[in-house]
Simulated scan of single mutants.
Amino acid sequence: MGKVFDGIDQQLATWLTAQPMFIVGTAPLEGDGLINVSPKGMAGTFAVLDEHTVAYLDVTGSGVETIAHLQQNGRIVLMFTAFDGRPNIVRLHGTGEVVLPGDPRFADLIPRFTVHPGVRSVIVVAVHRVSDSCGYAVPRMTYVQDRDVLDLWNANKGEDGLAEYRRKKNSASLDGLPGLV
């Protein structure tokens, strides 16, 4: 059934990047803090950098939980699920880092992704554990297309509107941890 892999080989990298959606899970250190799971999608927003490193484009949204949790403790898991083809679930456990636009590494990372308005960071994950499980109970679903609502919303806000939105909505997590400053 489930296997643990030494890293992300080319076959797995191809499978991961072909999935139209993945889930990100993080949590604060405090036991009573809120655990966060966040669905991610949009083609071209996830990249395998090498066999032990992945990254994804972080676009402005309603919360800042992932960023706040990573800044506090770095713990992260990404889960990919096959909704068509052979059933499969893959989890990438690791340590995440928030790379902001002012960071010199940002310029090297951003060309790996498709263009989207409202990019606030790139999340880079040093993957410590790669595992799969059966996915037998996951339903078959048909991918129709990416939604363009987030891109349209971010484009409509414009850079000044996004900066103001981030100040209001992305400065702290639900538990009060620092987010974007």
Rank of each mutant, 00 (worst) to 15 (best):
T60Q: 05
T60Y: 02
E65W: 07
T66I: 13
L70F: 11
Q71R: 14
Q71V: 06
Q72E: 15
N73W: 13
I76D: 04
V77L: 06
V77P: 01
L78A: 14
M79N: 05
F80D: 09
T81P: 03
A82T: 14
G85L: 02
R86K: 15
P87H: 02
P87R: 13
N88H: 05
N88E: 09
R91K: 13
G94I: 04
T95G: 00
G96F: 08
G96C: 09
E97H: 11
V98S: 05
V98P: 06
V98C: 08
L100Y: 07
P101R: 04
P101L: 12
D103S: 04
A107F: 03
L109V: 04
I110H: 00
F113I: 01
F113D: 02
F113V: 00
T114F: 04
V115T: 09
H116Y: 05
P117A: 15
G118M: 12
V124K: 02
V125F: 07
A126V: 10
H128T: 13
C134F: 11
Y136R: 13
A137I: 08
V138E: 10
P139A: 13
R140L: 12
M141H: 11
M141P: 05
T142G: 10
Y143I: 04
V144T: 08
V144N: 03
Q145K: 10
R147H: 08
R147T: 05
L150N: 07
L150F: 07
D151L: 04
N154W: 00
K157R: 15
D160T: 15
G161D: 12
G161L: 04
L162M: 10
A163G: 01
Y165G: 03
Y165S: 07
R166I: 11
R166H: 00
R166N: 07
R167H: 14
K169G: 06
S171A: 12
S171R: 13
A172P: 08
S173M: 02
